[in-house]
Computed example of a mutant assay.
Amino acid sequence: MAGGSRFRQADRLAAVEGYAYVGPDDIRAAAVDQPPGTPVRSPADLDRWLTARPRAELAEPFTYVVDLTGTLCLAPRRSEHVACASGARVLAAGEIGFERARTGWTVRESSNQSTGYCPDVTCWPALASALHRAGLPAPEGFTHEVVFRRCEGCGERAVVREDDYVCVLCGARLPGKWNFGR
């Protein structure tokens, strides 16, 4: 029960402040000249955007952010999340893939994989809410969760793999809790 209340508290913080971009400054600077993500507010918006994509792109997940208004924004996979978000804070960021079903598009895969924003796994409710608001069915959770931590030894962004909370760059122990700040 305590874990659940901790996640709800983290969700409330994210909903108020969102996640700031924590990636490299050169990527942030280059993103200024890239187009922002396309807002998806309805099934028709998603259908228009996906059917305009080359067929080969549909097999891969896309870059997404959920902006501070709770709107899902999409961009091609190799787009930077910071560009998709126009440099702003986000409620969630990662990758998302879709497949066509008899009743319309459904989410095939989703993650919080964004090394620019390094969102906590607790950002799932923001993505689920954005999908719901756009009239799209949401799965039960991410199909792939990424655990991000900032190494307190060398300051680098780290991905925790197989519950091994050790920085691969400097060997320092990584914190048990998400620690990028808001």
Results as ranks from 00 to 15, higher is better:
M1D: 14
G4P: 04
R8L: 12
V16N: 08
G18H: 13
Y19M: 04
V22P: 07
R28I: 00
Q34K: 13
G37T: 09
T38C: 10
P39V: 13
R41N: 13
P43V: 12
D45F: 10
D47W: 07
R48T: 14
T51A: 14
P54A: 12
T63N: 14
V65L: 06
L72C: 01
R77Y: 12
S79Q: 11
S79E: 08
H81S: 05
H81N: 07
A88I: 02
L91W: 08
E99P: 01
A101W: 00
G104A: 02
W105V: 01
T106G: 01
R108K: 13
E109T: 12
S110T: 10
S110E: 02
S111F: 06
N112L: 00
T115C: 03
P119T: 06
P119E: 02
T122N: 12
C123D: 07
C123R: 00
S129F: 04
A130G: 07
G135A: 11
P137C: 05
G141A: 13
T143H: 11
V146D: 02
V146H: 02
C151D: 02
G155L: 10
V160R: 02
R161M: 11
Y165G: 01
Y165E: 04
A172T: 07
R173T: 04
L174G: 06
P175T: 01
F180R: 05
F180I: 05
